[in-house]
Design a protein around this nucleic acid. Structure first.
Length: 232
DNA sequence: AACCGTGTCAACCGCCAGATA
DNA sequence: TTATCTGGCGGTTGACACGGT
C-alpha cells in the first residue's frame, strides 16, 4: 500500500484578513468566489473547500482558551445525546468550532485509551474500533475521564467480564471471499476498510502466527475469521 | 542535553445530500 | 432525468510543543 504524505499549508495572517474582509462584504457562502479572489488578488491558491474549512474551523469562532468545566460537561452530554454530531454540539457552545469539539473528544479518548491500556495484557485492552463503543457505559466512563484524574487511576482499572464480552464480539470483521469484506461496525471502520482492498487476503490465510501487524492495524486470524483492529 | 512519548490543534480528505445546469 | 457542482460534515493526519526520563 502506498499513501502519499500530505503537507498542511498554514494560513498566513494576510490570507485570513483578506478572507475576513471579503466575508464581511459578501457573506459566508460564496467559497468559489473567495477562492478565485485569493488567487487573483494575492496569488495564493486555496480551494473553495479550504476557504470554508478555514472560516468554519478557525476564523468564525475565535475563542482559543481551554474548555471550561461547564463547556466540557456540555460536550460530553451532547455526545451522549447526539452521538458524533460535532456541528450540532458546537452550536451549544458560543465561540467554539465543531473542529475544536471534535479535537477535544478525540484527544480525550486517545489519552484515556493510552492510560487505560498501559501495561495491560492484550485481552484486557480496549481497542477503539468505533466511537460506538462509547455507548457502553463502562467504556464511556473510562474514555471520558477528565485530564485531571491521575494516569495511575486509569492504569489500575479493569473491564468487567460482561463488557469484555461485548467489545470482543464487536471486533470481528468477517471475510466472505477474497475481495469481499463484510463489516458490522461503525462508519469509521467501513471507510478505513477500503484501504485493505490492495491487501492480499490470501496472505493472511498463510500466516502461521495468529497475529500480524500492518501499518496502524493489528490483524488476528481466528479459524475462518480475520480480525482487524486499529492499534491506536 | 537528548530522546521519546504524549497531547493539541490546524489542515486535509472523502462521503453525502441538495442545488443547479 | 441525469450529471455535475458545491457546501456541510465527520474522520484522519501531520506538525509541533511540552513534559518526563
Amino acid at each position: 500500500m502506498v499513501f502519499e504524505k500530505r503537507k498542511p499549508k498554514l494560513w498566513k495572517t494576510e490570507e485570513d484578513r483578506f478572507m475576513q474582509d471579503l466575508i464581511k462584504v459578501f457573506g459566508e457562502k460564496r467559497w468559489v468566489f473567495m477562492s478565485n479572489k485569493l488567487k487573483n488578488n494575492l496569488g495564493i491558491v486555496r480551494t473553495p473547500k479550504q476557504c470554508r474549512d478555514r472560516w468554519v474551523n478557525y476564523l468564525k469562532d475565535a475563542k482559543t482558551d481551554p474548555f471550561s468545566d461547564k463547556e466540557i460537561k456540555i460536550i460530553l452530554q451532547g455526545q451522549g445525546k447526539y452521538g458524533n454530531k460535532w456541528s450540532k454540539i458546537a452550536k451549544s457552545l458560543p465561540g467554539r468550532s465543531e473542529n475544536q469539539v471534535k479535537n477535544f473528544i478525540h484527544g480525550t479518548i486517545r489519552r484515556n485509551l493510552r492510560r487505560f491500556n498501559k501495561g495491560k495484557a492484550e485481552s484486557e485492552k480496549i481497542y477503539l474500533t468505533s466511537l460506538n463503543l462509547l455507548e457502553i457505559p463502562e467504556i464511556r466512563n473510562i474514555l471520558t475521564t477528565s485530564k485531571q484524574v491521575k494516569r495511575s487511576v486509569l492504569m489500575q482499572k479493569c473491564l468487567s467480564s460482561e463488557t469484555k464480552k461485548i467489545i470482543q464480539s464487536n471486533r470481528f470483521i468477517k471475510v466472505q471471499e477474497p475481495n469481499s469484506i463484510e463489516i458490522s461496525l461503525g462508519r469509521t471502520s467501513q471507510i478505513r476498510i477500503q484501504e485493505f482492498e490492495d491487501w492480499n487476503i490470501q496472505e493472511f490465510e498463510d500466516i502461521t502466527s495468529n497475529k500480524y501487524f500492518q501499518d496502524d492495524y493489528i490483524v488476528y486470524k481466528e479459524e475462518d475469521e480475520i480480525l482487524i483492529l486499529n492499534s491506536i
